[in-house]
């Protein structure tokens, strides 16, 4: 560690940090895989349904339970003879949209709570962070189910419900980061020019907390996709005939023996997307690590 200390001034001059973060990220094979997988999934979900000559709601009783790749149905058909691939992609739109939207809402809210608690400290911090702790004490899946049981399920409500149970992690990360930055000289310098609180929070502190926020946000997407799958699988989430990966799984369980592809493909999509977002999150964490420590 003494060697590291001696080399620190040297290190500091090496390239710009942004460059370095990208280099480090590129070295992370799984994260690169994750990025590629996510981009492909998003593109396929958006463009795919137009390219496939089947409608997701078109019922074709004659071709029920067609195994893949029967008659142009690459992934087979379900119990109503609907093309599984196009349903999978349409479900992807819903599931990924919920994932991203829940991430945006929960990250924004979590950041706001974290930065407020970290900046003001004292009683405000105690109240806000104890609220975070209390929220974390609930097993979020039950909370989710209870809320879902009372509220009319739709994309918006499911997104909000998932966001409501996912913002705490971001809040904690941001609060910790802000609290350590709070004592830095450059924050004192801002206080010394009489800067109001919101200037210090959003102009000085927030840009220096972006790294951990981005990492937490990425992991939140994975979590949100998984949560949506849970809730929909249990039947409280996205309702038929609209497809999501979760309710497709729910639907598939009755035919697990006879038509296993109905469960395998949605399951794979959930696994792939969740894993990809987690890989990217890990990669970002490693890549941005040095930047957390603002020199």
């Amino acid at each position: 560690m003494t060697t590291a200390a001696a080399l620190a001034p040297l290190e500091r001059d090496l390239a710009t940090t942004g460059n370095r973060a990208w280099r480090r990220f590129r070295r992370h094979r799984l994260a690169l895989f994750g990025i590629v997988a996510i981009v492909l999934m998003v593109l396929a979900s958006i463009v795919g349904p137009w390219l496939i000559p089947f409608d997701q709601l078109k019922i074709d009783i004659r071709h029920r339970f067609a195994p893949p790749p029967w008659g142009g149905h690459l992934f087979g058909t379900d119990q109503l003879g609907r093309d599984l691939l196009v349903r999978l992609l349409m479900a992807g739109r819903i599931s990924l949209a919920i994932g991203f939207l829940a991430m945006i809402v929960s990250t924004a809210f979590g950041t706001l709570v974290g930065i407020t608690a970290g900046y003001y400290g004292g009683a405000i911090r105690i109240v806000l962070m104890r609220f975070v702790d209390a929220m974390l004490c609930f097993p979020s899946i039950f909370l989710l189910l209870i809320l879902a049981a009372f509220i009319q399920p739709s994309v918006t409500t499911i997104t909000l419900i998932i966001a409501a149970t996912s913002w705490m992690e971001v809040a904690r990360v941001v609060e910790a980061q802000v609290r350590s930055l709070r004592e830095r000289d450059f924050i004192l310098a801002a206080e010394m020019i009489g800067a109001p609180g919101r200037y210090v929070m959003f102009r000085e502190l927030l840009p220096n907390a972006i790294g951990p926020i981005v990492v937490a946000a990425t992991l939140t997407v994975a979590r949100a996709v998984l949560m949506e799958a849970y809730v929909s699988f249990l039947g409280y989430g996205i309702q038929a005939p609209m497809a999501s990966w979760g309710n497709m799984l729910n639907n598939a369980q009755q035919y697990l023996g006879s038509a296993p592809w109905l469960a395998i493909f949605p399951g794979l999509m959930i696994t792939l997307s969740v894993a990809s977002f987690n890989f990217v999150g890990d990669g970002l964490r490693d890549a941005l690590d040095a930047r957390f420590d603002v020199k």
Binding site: L7, L10, L14, A15, N19, R20, R23
Partner: peptide, 11 residues
């Protein structure tokens, strides 16, 4: 000589 991301650096 250090091998750095910007090339060799003779310290």
């Amino acid at each position: 000589t250090f091998a750095t991301e910007r090339g060799p650096l003779q310290a």
